[in-house]
C-alpha cells in the first residue's frame, strides 16, 4: 500500500488546523483596512484561542452534558471535513469516505448540536439563535443541494476528488452552468458560515445575532474549540469553493513537489477569496431575517438555473 496519500492527508489536516486562524486574521485585517481602522494583526486569532485555552470554564448551573459535548463534536466534524476537501492533493484517503453530500451533512450535524447547546441553558437568546439558525439552514440546504447537483452533472460524480479531476481536465471554458452554480455557492457560503448579509460575526446585539446567540454562554476551552471550528469552517468553505470551481493547481501526480505547489496555490486562492469576502461584507448591509427568504431564494434560483442551463445550453 502506498503510504504517500496518508502522509498528505495528515499534513493537510494539520495545515487546515494551523492556517485557519491566520485566514480569519487576514479577513479581519482586510476589513479593518477597507474601513480605515487599524488592525490587530493577522495573528490575533491565534492569541485569542491561546488565551481561551488557558482560561477556566464557567458553566451555567443547569448546563447538561450536551452543552459540554458539543464543542468537541463541532471540532471533530470540522477536522474530518478538513480531511475530505482536496487541497494539497486529489488523492486523499479520507476523500473517498465521504462525498460532497456527506460533507454537507457533516456541517449539518455540527449545526444540530450547536443549536441544541443553544437551547440547553434555557435563555431567550439561545433559543432565538437556534430557531433562526435552523430556519436559515432549512432554506439554504435545498439551494446547496441544487448547486451540488449542477456540479455533479458536469463531473458525473459527487465524489470531491472526482469532481476536481474532471473540472480540472475540462475542455470547456465558458460553462454557464458552472457560473450559475458558483454564484449560488457564494450566496450559500455566506449563509452557512454566518457572514454579512445573513449574520454578523462581529455583533453581540440582541436582535441581530444568530450564531453568536447560540454560543453566548460558552467560555474557556469550550469557546476556544467552537471558535477554532468556526474559523476552520470559513476556511473550508473557501477551500471547497476553490476546489469545485477553480481547481487549478491541486496536485494530481502524488509527488512532494506537487503538494508544495498546491500549497502555494491554495494560499493564493485563500488570499484572493478573503479579498472577495471582504468586498461583499463591506458592500452589503445585514438583512432582516425575513428578507433572507429572498436572499436564499435567489441562491436556489441560481443553482436551479445552473442545472437548467446544463441541459438547455450545454
Amino acid at each position: 500500500m502506498n503510504v504517500y496519500p496518508f502522509i498528505t492527508e495528515i499534513l493537510q489536516i494539520l495545515l487546515v488546523l494551523a492556517i485557519s486562524p491566520a485566514f480569519v486574521g487576514w479577513v479581519r485585517a482586510l476589513k479593518c483596512w477597507s474601513q480605515g481602522r487599524t488592525t490587530a494583526g493577522m495573528l490575533q486569532p491565534y492569541r485569542d484561542i491561546m488565551k481561551l485555552f488557558a482560561k477556566d470554564v464557567f458553566l451555567a448551573e443547569n448546563a447538561s452534558w450536551i452543552f459540554r459535548f458539543t464543542p468537541y463534536l463541532v471540532f471533530g466534524t470540522a477536522v474530518l471535513a478538513g480531511g475530505i476537501i482536496p487541497m494539497l492533493s486529489v488523492d486523499l484517503p479520507l476523500s473517498a469516505t465521504a462525498d460532497v453530500i456527506v460533507l454537507v451533512a457533516l456541517f449539518a450535524i455540527a449545526r444540530f448540536f450547536t443549536t441544541l447547546a443553544g437551547m440547553d441553558i434555557g435563555t431567550a437568546f439561545g433559543g432565538m439563535g437556534s430557531s433562526r439558525e435552523m430556519t436559515i439552514a432549512s432554506l439554504s440546504e435545498p439551494a446547496m443541494l441544487m448547486a451540488i447537483f449542477t456540479i455533479s452533472l458536469a463531473a458525473r460524480s459527487t465524489s470531491l476528488s472526482q469532481i476536481v479531476q474532471v473540472i480540472y481536465s475540462g475542455q470547456s471554458v465558458l460553462r454557464p452552468s458552472m457560473a450559475f452554480a458558483f454564484l449560488a455557492f457564494v450566496l450559500i457560503s455566506l449563509a452557512e458560515t454566518g457572514r454579512i448579509p445573513v449574520d454578523n460575526p462581529a455583533t453581540h446585539l440582541e436582535l441581530t445575532m444568530i450564531h453568536e446567540a447560540m454560543i453566548l454562554e460558552y467560555s474557556g476551552r469550550h469557546l476556544a474549540l467552537i471558535e477554532w471550528a468556526g474559523m476552520m469552517k470559513l476556511t473550508l468553505f473557501m477551500a471547497l469553493g476553490a476546489a469545485l470551481f477553480f481547481p487549478w493547481g491541486i496536485d494530481n501526480s502524488g509527488s512532494a513537489a506537487g503538494a508544495f505547489l498546491s500549497l502555494v496555490f491554495l494560499l493564493l486562492k485563500l488570499a484572493a477569496g478573503g479579498v472577495v469576502l471582504v468586498l461583499i461584507e463591506t458592500g452589503l448591509a445585514k438583512m432582516r431575517l425575513f428578507r433572507l427568504t429572498e436572499f436564499l431564494g435567489s441562491a436556489f434560483l441560481m443553482a436551479t438555473l445552473g442545472m437548467l442551463s446544463f441541459f438547455i445550453l450545454e
Binding site: Q171, S172, L174, L305
Partner: peptide, 18 residues
C-alpha cells in the same frame, strides 16, 4: 459538450440574458 467556441459564447450570453 465539445461545442464550437462561438456556440459556447452564444450560450453563455444566453445564460446571462436569462
Amino acid at each position: 459538450m465539445n461545442l464550437h467556441i462561438a456556440a459556447q459564447i452564444n450560450s453563455f450570453l444566453a445564460a446571462l440574458v436569462l
